[in-house]
Amino acid sequence: MLLNQFLILSAVLFSIGVYGVLTRRNGVMVLMSIELILNSVNINLVAFAAFREAISGEVFALFVIAVAAAEVGVGLAMVLLLYRNRRNIDLAGIDSMKG
């Protein structure tokens, strides 16, 4: 197997994830796309770990999983709060930052 197989796969998944983050209006969907991004990063990390025969890449992937879990927890709490306050989770509607 080539290293590049995995790296390009992760790049493709990453960009799909970015597309999701950029186009979806649903807060939960955005969070799911972020998970996709984090997963592609994990594939990348583990591929390099296999390539360099270094275990630290895998440890980092584990840390990414843990961080992702924390991120989903906080993110979903925010989405729920948003839902409670506005009765929807449409990100396009959130423009109070507009100057």
Partner: peptide
């Protein structure tokens, strides 16, 4: 991303 991957690792075997 793919451009740089291909450029750097081309046919590197795992």
């Amino acid at each position: 991303a793919s451009g740089s991957f291909i450029d750097s690792f081309r046919y590197t075997e795992l």
